[in-house]
Design a protein around this nucleic acid. Sequence first.
DNA 1: ATTCTCTCAATACGATGTATCGCAGCAGAA
DNA 2: TTCTGCTGCGATACATCGTATTGAGAGAAT
Lengths: 230, 230
Amino acid sequence: MSVWDRPEPLARPVPLDQERIVAAAIALADEGGLDGVSLRKVAARLNAGPMRLYGYISTKQELFDLMVDEVYAEILPQEQPGDWREALGTLAHRTRHAALRHEWLADLLGGRPALGPNALAVGEVTLAALESVAGIDTAMRAVETVGAYFTGAIRREIANLRAERATGLSKHDWQRASGPHLTRMLATGRFPALAKAVHDGTDVDAEASFETGLDWVLDAVAAKLTRPSA
Amino acid sequence: MSVWDRPEPLARPVPLDQERIVAAAIALADEGGLDGVSLRKVAARLNAGPMRLYGYISTKQELFDLMVDEVYAEILPQEQPGDWREALGTLAHRTRHAALRHEWLADLLGGRPALGPNALAVGEVTLAALESVAGIDTAMRAVETVGAYFTGAIRREIANLRAERATGLSKHDWQRASGPHLTRMLATGRFPALAKAVHDGTDVDAEASFETGLDWVLDAVAAKLTRPSA
DNA sequence: ATTCTCTCAATACGATGTATCGCAGCAGAA
DNA sequence: TTCTGCTGCGATACATCGTATTGAGAGAAT
């Protein structure tokens, strides 16, 4: 057989490591949301059969965990924060921005304990920033509380964003004018306070709302830190 | 044909309304979690074929929305709260207890805007309790902030609970002793603050942690209410 | 050279959400 | 009374999913 007839060397498929798998999954999720991610499609992106993946992950849930930890690498601040407030504040902001870049993160945030190396690293620098200013227990409570806040706030923000996108209406228009169901409900008169809020409340954009709430919570933490009795 | 031969009157299947569908779905979810809920299984509980359901809901997501709203009926307090702090506090507690009764609620909480009648009713009494003590905008910010906190906190609590259950270990034992991955990571010395926290921190049960964070956030709200400049 | 083992991926399976389609039963007209 | 049309419901069908099983093929060992 001449050289020209020699078949491709079996196209030895790219060695395929965890990193590439996770990257492919994240790309898919960025494009089509979490349920755009199927093991088959991830594998297809890597020119592999679905079962190839099971050498590197043992379940789809594990893949999600790896994706989350990969995003925690984006969240981890590059420089050490100045004080505790900056540490918690930038953690909140960086998480929010990561979720805006990867909306699927909102679906996963808080759904399972995050124990990947990057998540742990984030926890480490955050706790370290609080260490000097509070006892361990207070520090953990502070991290938990602030974390709970921004987790919940981010989820709501993404949820609203999707709802607006799905109806093609801004939150303002949607609430005020045509969100048909809500309008009808408010018109029943059974929800006067809600109706007034929707009608008279000033529209604040999501970022400002996030910021306000965050400041409040950080103020609360500050109060407990200066008077470390609680 | 004699009476005895007459076939069953075709066992006219029970008329099947939304309420019964949602109840069946909730029962399934309570037993087997959210992915124990399939339209086929829900229908089977009601002696119906899967497609019967599509007369009452048009998508599985709608069923989830209905389930959530049904739980909001449990969350809605029966008596009008005394003051704003009680309103927000009991809302948080009742939501948490609902999530402990229906763990799947944690997966859905904050995932989509809750616009069902019961959710609106909850929003109504909450806002109403704040109306007298703050302007609309401050009131909404307060509800959002506290809501974000307890949403996130509940999700984390349920997530931890499941993790403990899955490993068969209490959080204490799991962190301290055998959570193999975490222990190994902490042993690397790359996470001194975390390691110290796990090692020296006092164990607080989930309820106490929830309570503490909630108090902090409510204190923060109180501070903004008395000095309504912000 | 031959056999054996072990790895890896193709095939197979049961389950899912939902579109489609066909039939049963009834209302009305001849 | 019989025929015809219609309507609404549910059985069947389909594409897709996560993952178990299995079979083939490469490399090692005798």
